[in-house]
């Protein structure tokens, strides 16, 4: 079943929990496993945290993050497509930024694993960024796809 939602939130850390929970709730119509839901929540949390910490680097509620989600059926699987967009500072070197353990803020106990987690936890992942214009992260996950022998379990709605 095709479905769509668009969420615009202030780029403040208080909204990280709301954003990941909202996307997980939207994904429920695909009847995901608990592992699928956990992966989606973690990936969204990473993307939103990047916007708050790196794109804007401020606590201003005027800065906005846009999250768009589409669910559809593709090749017999439910799929969720998620885009997280900011209008922040942009990324100088996307390849470097997405390398494991790379961080511009090591002094703040940043692990540099955010993009790696998004890549690993989702099935498709891409980043587009323009300096001083913003960044868009696109991620997709097939729901119900049995991977690495994991057995499907029903999520609690």
């Amino acid at each position: 079943m095709e479905n769509y939602m668009k969420l615009e939130i202030a780029a403040i850390s208080e909204n990280e929990s709301f954003a990941r929970s909202a996307v997980a709730a939207f994904a429920l119509s695909l009847n995901p496993t608990l592992n699928d839901l956990s992966d989606i929540k973690t990936a969204v949390s990473e993307a939103v945290t990047n916007c708050v910490v790196h794109a804007y680097g401020s606590k201003s509620a005027r800065d906005k993050i846009t999250i768009e989600c589409r669910t559809k059926e593709e090749d017999g699987f439910g799929v969720i497509h998620i885009t997280v967009t900011d209008s922040g500072c942009g990324i100088d070197d996307v390849e470097q930024a997405t390398a494991p353990f790379y961080t511009t803020l090591p002094s703040e106990e940043r692990s540099g694993m955010g993009f790696t987690i998004m890549q690993t936890f989702m099935d498709e992942f891409s980043v587009r960024s323009a300096k001083n214009e913003g960044t868009q992260v696109c991620m997709s996950k097939r729901i119900g796809w049995v991977k690495n022998g994991e057995i499907r379990e029903l999520a609690d709605a």
């Binding site: 929990s17 990941r20 929540k41 973690t42 949390s45 990473e46 945290t49 106990e109 940043r110 694993m113």
Partner: peptide, 13 residues
């Protein structure tokens, strides 16, 4: 109940 990559930095710290 939930941890993202912030938890990695937290634990190493």
């Amino acid at each position: 109940s939930f941890m993202d990559s912030t938890g990695i930095g937290f634990l190493i710290g």
